[in-house]
Every structure is written in C-alpha cells, then in structure tokens.
C-alpha cells in the first residue's frame, strides 16, 4: 500500500471534519462579522450532548443526532440572545474577548456537568476498516467523513438557494440594504448562530466518535484557525477547501517528518502554513478585501 496515498486519504477524511467545524465558524462570521472563539467549545458540547443521549439515556443513533442538532441550535440561540445581542456595536476586541470567556465558561460547565474524566462513545458504525483499493480508512473516520461532508453540502445548499440562506447572505453583504428589503436582520443573526452551532456540534459528535471526549476537547477548535485563515474568514467554499488542505498537510507532515522530528510535527504544520500564508496573502486565499467608499 502506497504510504503517500494512505496519508492523503486520511488527510482528506479528517479534512472533511475540519471543514464542517470551520463552517460553523464561517457561517457566524459571514452573517454577523463576529469571530467566535468559542467554536471549539460549541463542538465539545455537541460531543457531550451526543454522549448524554446516546450513552447515559440510551437513545438510538438517529434520534440522538436529531436531538443533538436541536440542542446545539438552542445553544447558539441562547448565546446570541443572552450575550452577543447586547454587545452589538462594541469594539471587535471586546466581542472577541467575550467569546473567549464564553469558551472557558462552557469548558468549566462541561466539567461540572460531566466531570473531567475521559469518556468514549460506543461503537455505532460497523467496526471493519474500509478498503478503498488504494488505501485503508478506519471505519469511524470513514463514516465521520461521510456525515461531515453531507452536513457541509446541506449547509452550503441552504446558504445558496433557500430563502433564509439568501436573506442571510444579503444581511452579510449589506445590513442597511437588507433591512430595507424587509429582512429582519436581527433574526438572521440569531439564525446564523443557531446554524453555526449545529455545524460545530455535529463536528464534535464525529470527533468524539473517533477519539473519545474530554472537556478540553474544545482545543481542537484552535485547528480551525489555520483552516479559516487559509480559506478566508467569510468564504464557505474556502472553509471547505481549507479544511481539506489542512487535513492533508497535517497528515503528510506527520507521516514524512514525524519519524525525524517526533509526533508534534503533525500539530505544528498547520500553524506554520497559517503564518506563511498570512505573510503572503493577508486576506486568505478567498477572503474579501474590505473596501468602503464614504
């Protein structure tokens, strides 16, 4: 089995999951211009919601997924209504700090509710690894990838074609014009938070299913920064492509450089790439350059 192909396939698989979580970040940024540094914690809570309904309450898989999405939407809704709505018009730095603080609060809350012990999910997918012919994928990774990519496609279609998606894009484009089209801009903000939280929460379910969960799972959320910076903060297509690139880079670095420099290279590589790209293209590969005429 070709080691290069094997690394590429693992990279793409994990990249699909990164794309989904990054989408959770981009949806919120695109509609509201808020950088949600608690995206990783949204993801972590999604995983704990899944653990609660699947393991503690013993619900079947499909209802669990639906309930997790509902809970995540509620989380996004509450965060927007209780915190961010009251910070409209505040300086960006204050809002960023608020989301960072929120992240720590959610981590603490998870420790209180579920303790800080490591928890693992029961095996919900067939255990046998999937043989693609040119590479072999772990079954959790394979099904996780399928779930992620399905969710990414559904979110993209909503954003592109559905009336609410178009209204959200309009809001992102020009709030004043959106208002005068009769779009309720504030409810679009709420909706963006709910959808963003669903995307991140689903990502958490997939990640938890692969590696188990702990309250500090949210730190994986840091990885979405190379992804979204690479793709441009406000580009959905960029987030998807960025997810794949980071997934592949990470796996190639781990596979080829890991034996010489140790396992840390795998986690380091995306951030090296991040800094390099920012030096060359400060707006990311697909981001928009803000030009305002006054």
């Amino acid at each position: 089995m070709d080691i290069f192909l094997q690394l590429m396939v693992s990279g793409v698989a994990v990249g699909g999951i990164y794309a989904l979580i990054a989408l959770g970040f981009v949806l919120i940024y695109k509609a509201t211009s808020i950088l949600n540094f608690a995206t990783g914690e949204f993801m972590m809570l999604g995983a704990y919601f899944c653990y609660t309904f699947l393991v503690l309450l013993g619900l079947p898989v499909i209802p669990t997924f639906l309930i997790v999405m509902l809970c995540a939407a509620l989380l996004g809704f509450l965060v927007e209504r209780l915190i961010l709505r009251h910070m409209l018009g505040q300086p960006t730095i204050s809002i960023v700090m608020a989301t960072i603080g929120l992240g720590s609060i959610l981590t603490g809350l998870a420790e209180i509710l579920w303790s800080s012990d490591f928890k693992s999910f029961p095996q919900i997918f067939p255990r046998a690894p999937i043989d693609l012919g040119f590479a072999i994928v772990r079954s959790n990774m394979f099904y996780g990838f399928l779930i992620s990519i399905t969710a990414v496609i559904v979110f993209s279609l909503i954003f592109k074609y559905a009336k609410v998606g178009i209204a959200m894009r309009a809001t992102a484009n020009d709030q004043m014009a959106a208002y005068s089209m009769g779009i309720n801009v504030r409810s679009m903000f709420t909706l963006a938070w709910a959808l963003g939280a669903i995307a991140a929460g689903l990502g958490g379910v997939v990640i938890g299913n692969i590696g188990g969960i702990q309250p500090n799972l949210g730190q994986i959320g840091l990885k979405i920064f190379p992804v979204v910076i690479l793709g441009g903060l406000d580009s959905i297509g960029g987030a998807i492509l960025g997810g794949f690139i980071i997934g592949v880079v990470e796996n190639l670095a781990g596979g080829y450089l890991g034996p010489y420099f140790g396992g840390g290279v795998k986690d380091l590589a995306p951030f090296v790439l991040l800094v390099m790209i920012l030096m060359v293209k400060p707006y990311g590969l697909f981001g928009k350059r803000e030009i305002e005429r006054l």
Binding site: R169, N173, D174, A177, Y179, S180, G182
Partner: peptide
C-alpha cells in the same frame, strides 16, 4: 425597519447598496 418594506416602502441608496456577490 424591516416591516416598513412590507407596507410598501422601497428605497435606492446614494452609494449603491447591492448585494455584490450575487
């Protein structure tokens, strides 16, 4: 603000406010 549109008030802007990506 948004319900005024449904009443029948429309507007064009001094600095064109189109949705540029669309």
């Amino acid at each position: 603000t948004d319900r005024r549109a449904a009443l029948g008030l429309a507007r064009t802007f001094q600095n064109i406010a189109l949705f540029h990506g669309m």
